[in-house]
């Protein structure tokens, strides 16, 4: 059974902005589902609808087999949401925040006590028990925020850009925590992000969306097939040379888009077999000094750029 099924979902605001436009997604139980898209893609609008905060203009949404619009009260008992901004009560202590959350979800006191102890342990919060929450760092506050939302043992946990603004270490710790939630608590995780690396590392399923539409949905590896592996990688000794090459390639008609990663330029072409010698010749004709050139497997970023660029072209 799927955890969430969204069919032809439309959300049009009073100011005329169509945030969601015939969106279709399916989230399987027990998986980490990432919604990937640029700013303004409609990710937050979707999460607000799925968490019963917004009402849609039209469409159907089923959560755990029940209609979201007919049974929002029941669905609220099954979900929790970690919002984009930390939502702990700074005037309550760590323990009071946890207890308050357990009470509003009507968790029996004895069960709540056990869960809170287990979560404090799992999320490594015990060292912070004696300090006021207002003094916590952003990373600890975020951990507490997630732990609080796990007190009710939700079947589905929504996270709206949970790692935005975090440093590299905090982000990696957060990833570990999310994988732990999926594996230990068997919770379905619905996550929005605009970090491709995050989506690729964490997700069982990824949906790429833009301007309210779902462009592609599947596992990270299946999404790579969307652009038929038509990527040519040109390696350089430094990023400066890579940038110069990128600028030159952007002017080539056969190149759809380019990106730079690890001193390499990745160029998307129509057919890598026939276009490979053409790109090679172009580089030699323009006296571009490169270390290596090869046909490469596309990354999620290439897929994302390919899909969103193609979409732009259709407009």
């Amino acid at each position: 059974m799927s955890a969430i099924e969204v069919k032809k979902l439309v959300k049009q605001y009073k100011n005329g902005v169509r945030a969601l436009d015939d969106l279709n997604i399916k989230v399987n139980k027990g998986e980490i589902f990432s919604l990937l898209g640029p700013n303004g893609a409609g990710k937050s609008s979707l999460i607000n609808i799925l968490t019963t905060y917004y009402t849609p203009t039209s469409g159907n949404v089923t959560v755990l087999g029940k209609d979201l619009f007919k049974e929002p009260a029941w669905i609220r008992t099954q979900i929790a949401c970690v919002a984009q901004h930390i939502s702990i009560d700074a005037h309550l202590s760590l323990m009071e925040n946890m207890i308050f959350q357990s009470r509003i979800y009507k968790v029996e006191a004895k069960v709540a006590k056990q869960r809170i102890e287990s979560l404090i342990d799992s999320f490594e919060l015990s060292d912070y028990l004696k300090y006021p929450t207002v003094s916590y760092s952003g990373g600890v506050k975020r951990r507490l925020d997630i732990a609080m939302n796990m007190v009710s043992s939700p079947k589905i946990l929504f996270l709206d850009e949970p790692t935005v603004g975090m440093d590299v270490n905090s982000r990696k710790n957060m990833w570990k925590m999310l994988l732990k939630i999926r594996d230990e608590y068997k919770t379905t995780i619905f996550l929005t992000t605009h970090y491709l690396e995050e989506a690729e590392h964490l997700s069982d399923t990824i949906c790429i969306m833009k301007e309210g539409k779902d462009l592609a949905q599947g596992t990270p590896s299946s999404l790579r097939n969307y652009i038929s592996q038509n990527i040519i990688r040109i390696a350089f000794s430094d990023t400066g040379k890579a940038k110069k090459c990128k600028d030159a390639l952007d002017g080539m008609e056969l190149v759809n888009f380019t990106s730079i990663r690890n001193n390499s330029v990745f160029a998307s072409v129509g057919d890598s077999r026939t276009d490979y010698p053409k790109v090679n010749k172009f580089l030699l004709d323009h006296m571009v000094e490169f270390n290596a050139i090869e046909i490469s497997e596309p990354s999620l970023e290439d897929v994302f750029l390919a899909l969103t660029s193609a979409n732009r072209g259709e407009e």
Binding site: Y53, A73, R76, I79, A83, D89, I104, Y105
Partner: peptide
């Protein structure tokens, strides 16, 4: 401002 308004609104209360 602190976000708990939204957290309570989506809680079963």
């Amino acid at each position: 401002t602190n976000g708990s308004f939204y957290r309570i609104l989506i809680a079963p209360i």
